[in-house]
Nucleic acid binder design. Structure first.
Lengths: 240, 240
DNA sequence: CGCGGATTCTGAATTCGATTCAAATTCTGA
DNA sequence: TCAGAATTTGAATCGAATTCAGAATCCGCG
């Protein structure tokens, strides 16, 4: 009988429950104050039960980071299906990142923490793998776009492999997220709209990488209009 | 009498002692296993004494991150004084970062951790400020270089403030460090020489930003030669 | 010198929270 | 309905950061 199967589903559902509670607690009181016992309590389960799902706090954190990846993946896939030039879609990924970061700043703080040696190393290997895989579609979408751009002549990789190429925008985005989410750094630089700048800089990077059609770096209005258009046409469902 | 003064110096020296011990322990056993009691023990002091210098473990970590910043600052200043085009010096900063990251990968893991919400927030504000200031010369050197480039016509900021401009290479570098120091990420992408790529991508970014003289992105040999030259002429003292 | 108060050091005791595990409970299949 | 098997429970354990009451040391002065 399917009893065993039903049970499995119940248990899987509980995993979501725990992750949701953890997310809420983090939202309310910050990553710093997250306590395993509070997570269990909030779900009306004993701590021991929580530990059947996650062998350690680190395990839970990485699992949470994996689960939250899905929404960003959805946004990327939406952009990937957009009918527009390869270059505009590449910018679209950046816009997606920007919107997502505004919607869920906590997610980036969590990612930043989860990828830290201390946490990452302490999480079980299987969970780490799952986290990498949960984020893999972002990479996949980017690689496919790069292939398409190469195929139709928008882009010449100049001897790089697609993976090597996409490291550039990827690093720029990750770095920007790190900077934005470290309290006190931007204030010092007097920067108020970091993600707006990120778009500009990614556009300039794409110019430097020779992704056609090259954009006129002077024409700020055009870039803003493009970003606006991406928000309206493609990512309207995700605007905060 | 100067007794009071001598004492102050002894105490300051002890701070270095503690930081040095912490650094060694981290090297040996990893950030994960750092214990306050071990740090004190290794210096033949009681834990209480350690806590007179650092009110918490986070305080110690951020202090360590600040102290270690000095060497990188030295490298940057060396590059800043190099007689070369503004653009080559900008590349030089990237080379310095690369060499430093190879020499002290632990430092970046520490920085990554220290800038994490959990640690950063838990450190006293004064210490955070000090850490930002310890790193400020990096920013300062970059801003001065940008000013010089603007002054002699190598660079047109296109309406950006220098701080906004330098966010681009800064984010790219930070992002690259994050990616490199997260175990398992690069393997997935099959990237073996990330910092080599970073130089290439920073050069392409500078092209996109219009920093003259523009480089020929096809000419890999030229870039390699430049990096080589910077190592030999400017940063020889820091090569591992 | 030697003294009393101020300062600094000490490390055992406390605290806090993650993690464990023996007992209690619930489920399963016959 | 019953004997295991599987799951859940939460009090007990453990580990490490942090504290703090007393011990030791220092300082300036008579």
């Amino acid at each position: 009988m399917g009893t065993r199967e039903r049970r499995r589903r119940e248990v899987a559902g509980r995993e979501q429950l725990f992750l949701g509670a953890a997310r809420d607690l983090i939202r309310q009181e910050g990553l710093l104050n997250l306590q395993m016992s509070r997570v269990a309590e909030m779900c009306d389960y004993a701590v021991g039960t929580l530990y059947q799902h996650f062998v350690s706090k680190e395990d839970l954190l990485v699992a949470l980071a994996s689960e939250e990846a899905q929404e960003r993946v959805d946004m990327f896939q939406r952009v990937a299906q957009w009918k527009a030039s390869t270059r505009d879609r590449m910018l679209g990924f950046a816009v997606a990142d920007m919107l997502y970061a505004r919607r869920s700043p906590e997610h980036f703080r969590l990612l930043q923490f989860a990828f830290t040696e201390v946490v990452w190393t302490a999480a079980p290997a299987a969970r780490r793998q799952a986290c990498i895989e949960a984020n893999a579609p972002l990479r996949q979408a980017t690689l496919e776009l790069i292939d398409e751009a190469v195929g139709n002549g928008d882009l010449d990789l100049r001897g790089l492999r697609p993976d090597e190429f996409c490291l550039a925008p990827w690093a720029l985005a990750i770095g920007m997220h790190s900077i934005v989410h470290t309290k006190g750094l931007l204030e010092q630089h007097g920067i108020s709209e970091p993600y707006h700048l990120m778009l500009r800089h990614i556009s300039e990077l794409l110019n430097g990488l020779g992704w056609k059609p090259l954009a006129d770096s002077t024409d700020h209005a055009a870039l803003d209009a493009l970003a606006e258009r991406i928000c309206k046409e493609v990512l309207h469902a995700y605007i905060c």
